[in-house]
């Protein structure tokens, strides 16, 4: 994936995200403390925040509204549509492929007929990931996907994301406030502070 971002976005609370970078990598990690602009950056790439200039693999996403960008977005609290079953959540996108493959890869086959309120936190995360994958996105955004997990579950979740990345050959942008989570998966890392890029890191050819 070759991703270029040039964004200057002012929030009503006075916060300004002002970044410009280009990366050529499979998994881009974004690190930084809370409130540094990581989620705003994901919003800009996804099209929630308009006004950023985004290019992905030579194609400009800038003029496209959110629903035409084909960018999967998994929020940190793994929001699911509460009135839809797991199956309907995963099959929600008009671009949804056969959901059985995705459900099987993520170990959700037995949960397909459940409603979200009957799922554990870990199951919800897997369903949110499955729903984003089923939509056949060209890029997957993961916002603090391991937040709130204990060490054992975090290791499992990191292994799951790694497996998904391999199985679907899907480029990702992974946001976390914990450097070790990003280092476990990312092939290139950038750091944000106060809405600005402070440390673009070189690609690690070993990964």
């Amino acid at each position: 994936m070759k991703l270029s971002v040039a964004a200057k976005i002012a929030r009503p609370n006075g916060f300004v995200l002002d970044v410009a970078f280009t990366c050529d990598t499979d998994v881009l990690g974004v690190v930084g403390p809370s409130g540094c602009g990581k989620s705003t950056l994901l919003d800009a790439i996804a099209g929630v925040e308009r006004g950023a200039v985004i290019t992905l693999d030579g194609t400009s996403l800038t003029p496209l509204p959110m629903h035409q960008r084909r960018i999967g977005y998994v929020t940190q609290d793994a929001l699911l549509f509460p009135h839809l079953s797991v199956r309907a959540n995963i099959a929600y996108s008009p671009f949804a492929r056969t959901i059985d493959d995705v459900a099987q890869t993520l170990g959700l086959t037995a949960l397909l007929d459940r409603m979200p309120r009957h799922l554990s936190g870990g199951e919800r995360r897997r369903v949110a990931l499955a729903r984003a994958l089923a939509a056949s996105p060209q890029l997957l955004l993961l916002d603090e996907p391991f937040n709130g997990l204990d060490d054992a579950r975090r290791a499992d979740a990191i292994a799951l994301v790694r497996d998904v990345h391999r199985a679907f050959a899907l480029p990702m942008v992974l946001v976390s406030h914990r450097r070790e989570e990003v280092d476990a998966l990312a092939t290139q890392v950038i750091a944000l502070e106060g809405g600005r890029l402070v440390a673009p890191a070189a690609s690690d050819p070993a990964r």
């Binding site: 996804a46 099209g47 629903h67 977005y73 929001l79 549509f81 996108s93 008009p94 984003a132």
Partner: peptide, 8 residues
């Protein structure tokens, strides 16, 4: 927003 990110 999630719905729109999924193509709706």
């Amino acid at each position: 927003r999630l719905s729109q990110s999924l193509g709706r």
